[in-house]
């Protein structure tokens, strides 16, 4: 028997087996069909509930926050406002030098430590070394 005969016989056998398998396809049980429909009902109920839920209204403050860029923007503004109050109350030396002398028209030469008092010790040390 030739190879093509063998191939033909196998093709016929396969088609026959496929046909038998198509005729004996698994049938879903009533229990499975029931579970599938129960899922469909659950999905419908959940969808209806989502549609029926009232839309939450946004408060006035939340609306303003949203208008200026959301809560991160509000946090930034609050930090800036806090820093402003602190500067006004504490009046750091560098700032009082700036506002009390530079901006009032004196012609004096300013030293580093006037704006940054923390560097005063460093400046003195450098001067000692220079001597």
């Amino acid at each position: 028997m030739g190879r093509s005969d063998e191939t033909d016989r196998n093709a016929v056998m396969l088609e026959d087996v496929f046909s038998a398998a198509r005729d004996e396809a698994p049938v879903p049980s009533q229990a499975l069909l029931g579970r599938i429909m129960a899922d469909a009902d659950d999905v419908t109920r959940a969808r209806d509930a989502a549609r029926a839920a009232p839309v939450r209204r946004r408060g006035a403050f939340a609306a303003i926050a949203a208008a200026i860029g959301g809560w991160p923007a509000v946090a930034g503004m609050a930090t800036a406002a806090g820093a402003g109050v602190w500067i006004g109350v504490a009046q750091p030396p560098a700032l009082s030098t700036l506002t009390g002398t530079m901006l009032t028209g004196t012609t004096a030469q300013y030293q580093l430590e006037e704006f940054a008092p923390g560097y005063a010790a460093l400046v003195s040390f450098e001067e000692e070394l220079a001597e």
């Binding site: 698994p26 499975l32 419908t44």
Partner: peptide, 23 residues
């Protein structure tokens, strides 16, 4: 139709498709 709330449509789809998917 099922997406618009028609339960009968789901039943017909189940009858039509579940056997093929199971197979």
């Amino acid at each position: 139709a099922f997406g618009n709330g028609d339960r009968e449509a789901a039943q017909r789809l189940t009858a039509r498709l579940a056997p093929r998917v199971l197979g």
